[in-house]
Structures are given as structure tokens and as C-alpha cells.
Design a protein around this nucleic acid. Structure first.
Lengths: 247, 247
DNA sequence: GCTGCCGTTTGACCCAGATCAAAACAGCGG
DNA sequence: CCGCTGTTTTGATCTGGGTCAAACGGCAGC
């Protein structure tokens, strides 16, 4: 076997759903081998995005949904007066762009917080294929539903939790998502700035910083710049929900 | 024609998608006459719910999605410690229960704020039928997407708006939704209590009351108990976004 | 290694909206 | 018509987290 041929082969393997290590986490979860092949045919474009690049911008037309293969991104919704609110942080296996199906236009910006790779999934193709593969159809519905469920959680957080609780929820959520992807649940890098965390949690960056320092003083976490280690995960869990509510 | 027969006929007409006055607003929007017939076959159960009745409770298994035919309801997500956060107010034509598709269990309570009528739409049937009718499939996706989009708006509101802005956004949203349903955009009844408004907006009931009184003093609205009249809709619109942000 | 730029931390002070309290009011059953 | 209950309004006071300000630290470019 000639070397050039092998390279091409490996390259192709790397970018197919059927061999992607995320396929149990991502859209094709639960599909059979032959159904995965159909997925492979549907997803023909992969994009590499560099830190700071936009995957899509608010106001632009929906071209496709994007499955995150590697990297880390945020989506933020903008108010006409310039205020921006981080609506979510996304990591590998997550599907983004679903906010745009309703109107055909994206409502938020999505941008990479580190060099990333995404798979473009044209909505039309996805809808076509899910008419043929019931389990894909149902799984897509589950993914959209989980986004709604996540949003409800954020509403609860923003509407009725105090600062410490918000931050604890945030850290526990990151921890759990990293764990689900095979990474450490207690030690990770915060890819976003304090300001972005604050925006997501409805707090100012100073409050995020202060609360993080307070957690550190209490021995709950060890923070050094963007590196975070959770020391007492149970105490963090207890912290959520036991304090008197703010609203 | 005998009277009893006529009654049955009218009754049947009243409960079919094909003759429902909401069908351009609801799930079957854009379907052909024959496709509407298929919808009729799918939706075989209509439920009447009285003020205070639950349509579903958090933690219970997903049986069906519910399209609201008449009435007004709220959904609220609960925190284990008893805190509750209103996640949305729903009126005729709205589809609720989509939060449960992901896990198979409802994450929020849905309860009627006035006597209402809902159509039960079994998820399995809906998925089956949308495999046959592409426009139904796409419209269902659009509805789920619009729920995500709405949630992003609520996040922006809860995360970065001051009390007056939140209330103005709330009133403008109600106004616009009533208008879309053929009712007055400037005069309507608030079906929910001040406390429920507050919960939805992340404010306490006293703040809602005070802010409403303030709007009244400024001549923006006329409130009398639960009856509300918008006097200066443009001023309300201007109010949103011009103040310095809280977060 | 030095310099400049961000992002972060920490302190001091302030204010929007929460909390507490009480009165006014609507709606309802008897 | 009355009394009861739950909702709403309004006032007085308090406080969590916002705002302003300054110092610190890590890292990229030179």
C-alpha cells in the first residue's frame, strides 16, 4: 500500500460520523452502521474556526446547524443598544444554530473561544434524512428539547438564585459536561473570561471574581487564573438551594 | 334536520384541526386540506382543564404535547427547595410540553390560569405524521426553535435588564401576542397575579406593582386591577434599551 | 529581558430592588 | 349585606451586588 493512499484514507476516516469518537454524544447517537453511512453522506463540510472567529452572526440567514467536533464556543444574544448576553457555552458534541430554524435567521452570534472544528449539517438534509430514519428524527427532537430544558434551568438561575448559587451551578454544570466527555470532572480550564461568565450568569465580572475568591477561601475550589480545581464538590452542591432566595 | 344530529355535528366540527380557527397559528399551519384530515385523525383527545388544574406536572412521564385551543396557562420550573420560577405564559395556539422530549419526563408544571381547552398530541403520532408530511415536520421544528428563541429573549431580559425594562418588554410581548390572535393589542386582562408576573420577570411582586403604578403615573398605561390598557405603546418601546444596563 | 495590554483581583461606596409591615381592596360564600 | 380570604398597593428600611477606582499579574511582541 502506497503512502499517499493511506494518508487520504486516514483523513477520510477522521472526518466521518461513522468513525467519529463523538458519535454517541452527537446527533447520530444510537444509529446503526448503515444509518451512520447516510449521515456521512449528509455532512460534507467541516469547518475549522480559529479562536475569535464567528461560526455565525445574529441576523444572518440560517445555512446549516453546526455540530462541534473539537473546541469551545459561546453564543451571545445582542440587544440593539449594544448590551450582550452570553446565552450559552458549547463544547464538543453540542449542536448549535437551532435558534434560527423558526425565523430562518440567527438570533445570536456564535464564536469560538479556542481553535475549534465544526461539522456543517444542512437543515434540509437533516430533515430529509430524519424522515427516513425515525431514530435520527427522534434524537434530533431530543436535542432541541434538551436545549429548551437547559434554557429553563438558566431562567431559574437568573430569575431566582443568588450570586454564589449561580456560580456553583455554573461550575457543577461544566464539571458534569466535562465528565460526560471523558475529561476530569474536578480539574479543568475555564476557556472564557470572568466577564463572559458574568454575562452568562447575570453578574458583573467583579462579582464573579469575588465569589470565586470566596469559594477559594472556603476551600471549595482552587483557582489559579483560568485553571480551576474543584476540591469539595459536595459542598458546592449543598450550597445550591440552601440559602434564602433572592427573588 | 333533527336538532340532536345538528348538535353532534357542530360539536365534531368544533374539535377538528381542519375546522379549528387556530389552524394557521397552531401546529398544522400551512398544511393542505388532505393533510389537515390526517392531523384530525392524530388528535383524538381534547381535554378541558379548569382554572387551577394541572395539564402536566414536573417529574411525570411525557404522554403527549398539548396545543392550547382556548384559555391561558403558565408553566413553572421548580427548585428542590420549593422556589418556583414561572418559565412562560401560554395562550391559544401555543404548543407546550416540548421540554420533556429530551428526558421523557416533564421538567415543569403546566397549569391553567383560567378554564381552558387543550388538544393532546401524542409525540409518537406527531413524529410518524411528520415523516410523511415534510411541511408538518418543518413547522414542528420551527415551533421548537421559536421556543428556544423565546428563551434566549428571556435570558437577555433576566440577565441584563432593569425592572422597568423587564415589565415593558413583558407588556409589549403580551400586546403583540394578543394582536396576533385577533384581540386588542392595547387593552387586555392580565390573567396572572403580580406575583406570577414577578416570578417570570425575576422581580418581587411589590416591584411589579410599584413599576406598574409608575407607568400609570407617567401616563404610559392605565391599570385597574387585572385590566390593563396601553396608552403610549411607543413610549413603552423607547423605554426598553435606553437606560443604562444593570449588569 | 522589557514594555504594554488585557484580564483579574481587591477595596470603598452606592443604589435598585428586596424585605418587612400595614392598609386598602376585590371577590366570594353564606 | 357581611365577613373572610387572598391580592394589590404603598411606605419605610435594608442589603446584595453594582459601580468606580486602583493595583496587580500573565503573556505577546519587540
Amino acid at each position: 500500500m502506497a503512502t499517499p493512499l493511506r494518508i487520504v484514507e486516514v483523513d477520510k476516516l477522521k472526518t466521518a460520523c461513522s468513525t467519529c469518537s463523538l458519535h454517541e454524544l452527537c446527533l447520530p447517537a444510537g444509529l446503526s452502521a448503515s444509518e451512520l453511512k447516510s449521515m456521512d453522506r449528509m455532512i460534507d463540510i467541516r469547518r475549522t474556526v480559529k479562536r475569535g472567529d464567528y461560526i455565525f452572526r445574529a441576523g444572518t440567514a440560517l445555512h446549516a446547524l453546526y455540530a462541534i467536533r473539537t473546541g469551545f464556543m459561546k453564543s451571545c444574544v445582542l440587544h440593539e443598544d449594544g448590551r450582550e448576553q452570553v446565552a450559552g457555552f458549547h463544547m464538543m458534541g453540542d449542536l448549535i444554530g437551532m435558534d434560527a430554524i423558526g425565523s430562518g435567521q440567527h438570533l445570536c452570534d456564535a464564536l469560538a473561544l479556542e481553535d475549534s472544528e465544526v461539522c456543517e449539517i444542512p437543515l434540509k438534509s437533516l430533515e430529509l434524512l430524519s424522515r427516513e430514519i425515525p431514530s435520527l428524527q427522534h434524537h434530533f427532537h431530543r436535542i432541541m428539547s434538551r436545549e429548551i430544558a437547559r434554557d429553563y434551568g438558566v431562567m431559574l438561575l437568573l430569575g431566582s438564585m443568588r450570586a454564589e448559587e449561580r456560580l456553583a451551578v455554573f461550575l457543577l454544570n461544566l464539571s458534569q459536561r466535562f465528565a460526560a466527555r471523558g475529561y476530569s470532572s474536578t480539574e479543568f480550564h475555564l476557556r472564557m473570561t470572568r466577564e463572559e461568565i458574568g454575562s452568562y450568569l447575570g453578574l458583573k465580572l467583579e462579582t464573579v471574581s469575588r465569589t470565586l475568591s470566596q469559594f477559594q477561601a472556603q476551600g471549595l475550589v482552587a483557582v489559579q487564573n483560568k485553571h480551576l480545581r474543584i476540591l469539595k464538590i459536595d459542598s458546592l452542591r449543598e450550597l445550591v438551594g440552601q440559602h434564602g432566595c433572592r427573588v
